[in-house]
Amino acid sequence: MLLLFLLVPLGGLLVRAAITHPGAGLASPAVWPALRLSLFTTTCSTVCVAVLGTALAWRIARGQGAWARWAETASQLPVVIPPAVAGVAMLLVFGRRGVFGPLLDRAGIALPFTTAAVVMAEIFVSAPFFLQAATAAFRRIDEPMLIVARTLGASPPRVFFRIALPLALPGLWGGVAMSWARALGEFGATLMFAGNMPGRTQTLPLAIYSALESDLDAAQAIAALMVVIAFLVLLVLRALQPGTVTGGGAAR
């Protein structure tokens, strides 16, 4: 029932886009720059999230006491905040009149309305999804295994790269897929912080929303294209996902 509820609107979108001039919408000049920009920015943001997020998730998962609990809760906050509010918050920090505004200005850096701003907005909204998956993956690793590795003389970085990282990899891939998908769909924070400029900050969701104002068919065609691409990329990520290595519990 739930699956039906989730899939039927998407199916309706695809069917309708296929019936009504499928070419016309995709021929709209806004589509390809938006697609290229979406793929580029989501790749950048996902790489940033995966690299920085893995380090943070490891610290949270291994951490004991108040710090780790606090950090874990805090890192989930962006999920609850409406993205548009997040965009305003980013303007208030990185904008011209923001906290770092004068500093950035003196360095000759202007972030709002740039592609970098799109990536920042995507990182902001998508990182929690990766962190949650990665923290859970690291937590699933049996602690005695990590202790043994240390007693064998392995330094903490070595334990991380040789033992923890390979074991958590399937979970990390899952987090990559989740956060990539969230970054692709990101709309509100981008709109507020990066604006809507074709070729520079107009990602697929923004192009869809722009088209909704004038040309419903084009909007549906782009939306259908986005659903297809998201589906394909998630399939590829799933295919690349390494097989789950049974945890230390398998030694039972």
Partner: peptide
């Protein structure tokens, strides 16, 4: 000089009001 084409006119106004 156009840096953004906002999805509605109030957002364009908002960017000016914020000084961006």
């Amino acid at each position: 000089r156009i840096v953004s084409r906002e999805l509605n006119v109030r957002q364009a106004l908002g960017k000016v009001a914020l000084g961006e």
